[in-house]
């Protein structure tokens, strides 16, 4: 078939009335090539998601599981709370809203920290000689080799009250009492920035790798200081790397489970922990399912807003 596709459209080919593309799919079997991917998507992603969606509209059974009885109670309780004394009185579910806010805010801050730390790191790697770059990239990915839980416990060991940092500061006399770092939002932030940093560095490096060093020389030649070369030439040109990196960091960060569990303690929950709580101790599967769907909606909404914003900026620059 390929041979026919490549042959010039001479008279010998013209007498064939069916165009080559149609010939190739004469039996309509071409779509089978994407069957493996389709199978995985349907059975492992869309299917379970559908189950979660259905469960979020059911009634919780006493000891976990669901009763097949339609209810919107779970969705109400995602955002609203009943007064303890007067169940008819509905108010905003402050605990849930605080957790939503913490999740979004921490994920956003994580992406920001990763961008700030990742840029110089990626720049350093991109400016090494071609041969040593592979070594540096390899070093960046080494943390992936260790279990996430173990790495998170390692951070705990560093920042806990009797941990490395506090011990050193106490011994040095810089502080009188240990600083409470563990079980705070700060600890979660440190842990997530550490875990997700490579996801920012790699796309940034890919963008910088394509950057023509002569463009920087041209800017420098045209009276731009190093800072302004960075601002006016490097940053706009590696922006696709920032976009890809911040999406790659933000999405897993907002649904993070292990890091806030180990470093945030019970008090500083994120959405992932809240969902786990409903399916576990809470024994309220419909609420857990509704929360999971809420997380999905938040991620998709954030992405849409972000891409719109990026797209508009792109357009504005073209017009201006």
């Amino acid at each position: 078939m390929a041979v026919r596709d490549l042959s010039p459209a001479g008279p010998a080919v013209r007498d064939e009335p069916v165009p080559p593309a149609a010939v190739a799919d004469r039996h309509g079997w071409k779509w089978l090539l994407c069957a493996p991917a389709l199978t995985i998507l349907v059975f492992a992603a869309s299917g379970p998601l559908l189950i979660v969606l259905v469960y979020s509209f059911l009634t919780p059974a006493g000891f976990g599981g669901v009763v097949w009885e339609f209810s919107t109670e779970a969705w109400f309780r995602v955002f609203l709370a009943r007064d303890i004394f007067e169940p008819e009185l509905l108010g905003p579910n402050r605990a849930h809203l605080a957790i939503f806010w913490r999740s979004v805010s921490l994920a956003f801050q994580t992406a920001l920290i990763c961008a700030v730390l990742g840029f110089p790191t990626a720049w350093f790697i991109a400016t090494r000689p071609q041969r040593s770059r592979a070594v540096w990239l390899f070093l960046i990915t080494i943390p992936f080799w260790t279990n996430l839980l173990i790495r998170t416990f390692a951070i705990q060991e560093v920042i806990r009250n009797q941990g490395l940092i506090n011990t050193i500061l106490l011994k040095a006399g810089a502080i009188e009492a240990p600083i409470q770092m563990l079980y705070t939002d700060f600890a979660i932030l440190v842990g997530m920035a550490y875990v997700f940093l490579p996801l920012m560095v790699l796309p940034l490096y890919a963008a910088m790798d394509k950057l023509d060093i002569r463009l920087l020389e041209a800017g420098y030649d045209l009276y731009a200081s190093r800072w302004r070369v960075l601002r006016h030439i490097v940053l706009p040109l590696v922006k696709p790397g920032f976009i890809a990196g911040s999406i790659l960091v933000f999405i897993p960060a907002i649904g993070a489970y292990v890091t806030p569990r180990v470093l945030g303690g019970g008090r500083n929950m994120m959405l992932g922990n809240l969902i786990e709580l409903q399916f576990g101790q809470g024994r309220n599967w419909p609420l857990g399912a509704a929360l999971a769907m809420t997380l999905l909606i938040i991620v998709v909404a954030t992405l849409v807003v972000y891409m719109r914003y990026v797209g508009r900026q792109e357009e504005g620059r073209r017009d201006g």
Binding site: A218, D221, A224, I233, R318
Partner: peptide, 27 residues
């Protein structure tokens, strides 16, 4: 280079791809 009264035309031109022709010239 930014403090010398000298400008360069590069072999591959090195035009800034994210700027319009006018913005390149005015840079």
């Amino acid at each position: 280079p930014n403090r010398r009264p000298v400008n360069t035309v590069f072999q591959n031109y090195a035009l800034f791809p994210h700027m319009s022709v006018a913005d390149n010239i005015g840079f």
